[in-house]
Design a protein around this nucleic acid. Structure first.
Length: 286
DNA sequence: AAACTTTTCAACCGCCAAATT
DNA sequence: GAATTTGGCGGTTGAAAAGTT
C-alpha cells in the first residue's frame, strides 16, 4: 500500500487564481505553515489541487518574492549561470534571491534567448553561430569553436571537482549518498569524463586534484573554489586558468574571452552589447 | 478605432526521484 | 521489496496585454 492520493481531480478549479483564493492560501500558510500540500486545500477551504496551491505559493504569493522587471545585474547573472548550469532553472533561481525558477525560465525564453541569438550565440550551448537560410550553423572549425568545446570540457571538469570537494566536507554516510546522486560526478565518472581525462592526460600529465592553496571567487551569491594562480598555470587546467586570469586581473591576451564575457561583462546596459565584441576569441594554448 | 499579430507570463502537464505504507 | 503517492522540476500552453497595420 502506498500513500493516499494527492487529490482526485473531480470538482477542482483550474485556471487563474482569484484574490479571494490567494487570501485564503496566504492566511492558511501564515497560521499553519506550508506543511502537507495534499491536505492544505481542504483545510484552507480551497477547491484546488495541492500541487496548484504549492505552485501558486512558491511562484507568486511567497512574501520573499521580488516582483518587477529584472535588473541588468540579474540578467547578467542568469546568462552566466545558464552558461554553466544549462536549463536548470531551480539551480539558477537559487542564486537570485527573490526570483522563482518559473520567472527565470520565462525571462530566458522571452528575452535572453532572443538576444543571444541576435548577438550570434547559440542560446543552448552559448557557442557562436551564424544564421544561414534561417537555420543555425556553426562557423567552420574556427578557433572560437575549439575554445567553446574546451570551455565545455572545462565546465565538466570544474563541476566534477567541485562535487568531489564538497564531498570531502560531508560525513561518509552522506558523502556516499551524494556521490551516487550527484549529476556531474556521475557524468565525470562516465565515458564522457573518461574521454576528457584521457585527452587532458595526453596534453598535460598534471593530475586533477584539489589543492591546498585554494581561493574563492564570488559569482553573485554563489562561490566557486579555485586554485591559486601559479598552480592554475602550471597545471593548465583550463577552467582554473580562466578563473585565475579573471580573478587576478591578469587577463593577458584573452581580455575579450568568452569567460570574461561570462564572468565580467559590463552591467550598466541591458541590451547585451557586451556580447558584440566577444566573437573574437583568444587562443587557449599560448 | 478596429482588426490582426506578437509578446508576455501565470498556470498546467507530465516526468522522475524520494518518501511512505 | 513492491506499490503507490508526494514534491519538485522543466517544458509547454493559452489567455491577456501590448504592439502594429
Amino acid at each position: 500500500m502506498g500513500r493516499a492520493p494527492c487529490c482526485d481531480k473531480k470538482g477542482l478549479k483550474k485556471g487563474p487564481w482569484t484574490p479571494e483564493e490567494d487570501d485564503k492560501l496566504v492566511e492558511y500558510i501564515k497560521n499553519h505553515g506550508q506543511g502537507n500540500w495534499r491536505n492544505l486545500p481542504k483545510l484552507a477551504g480551497l477547491l484546488r489541487c495541492g500541487k496548484s496551491c504549492r505552485l501558486r505559493w512558491t511562484n507568486y504569493l511567497r512574501p520573499d518574492i521580488k516582483r518587477g522587471p529584472f535588473t541588468p545585474e540579474e540578467e547578467k547573472l542568469v546568462v552566466q549561470l545558464h552558461a554553466i548550469l544549462g536549463n536548470r532553472w531551480a539551480a539558477i533561481s537559487s542564486q537570485l534571491p527573490g526570483r522563482t525558477d518559473n520567472e527565470i525560465k520565462n525571462l530566458w525564453n522571452t528575452h535572453l534567448k532572443k538576444r543571444l541569438l541576435q548577438m550570434g550565440f547559440n542560446p543552448l550551448t552559448h557557442e557562436p553561430v551564424t544564421l544561414q537560410n534561417g537555420s543555425l550553423t556553426r562557423p567552420p572549425s574556427s578557433p572560437s569553436t575549439r575554445h567553446m568545446t574546451q570551455w565545455e570540457s572545462a565546465r565538466l571538469e570544474a563541476e566534477a571537482r567541485l562535487s568531489k570537494e564538497s564531498l570531502l566536507t560531508l560525513p561518509p554516510s552522506i558523502a556516499k549518498y551524494s556521490s551516487e546522486n550527484d549529476f556531474f560526478l556521475r557524468l565525470w565518472n562516465s565515458e564522457v569524463g573518461e574521454t576528457f581525462r584521457n585527452l587532458h592526460k595526453e596534453k598535460n600529465p598534471a593530475p586533477f586534484s584539489s589543492s591546498s592553496s585554494e581561493a574563492t571567487i564570488e559569482t553573485g551569491s554563489a562561490s566557486v573554489a579555485v586554485k591559486d594562480e601559479k598552480e592554475c598555470k602550471s597545471s593548465k587546467s583550463c577552467m582554473d586558468y580562466y578563473i585565475c586570469c579573471n580573478s587576478s586581473n591578469e587577463v593577458e591576451d584573452e581580455s575579450e574571452s568568452t569567460l570574461e564575457m561570462l564572468f565580467d561583462f559590463p552591467s550598466n546596459d541591458n541590451d547585451m552589447s557586451f556580447l558584440e565584441h566577444s566573437t573574437d576569441f583568444f587562443t587557449l594554448y599560448p
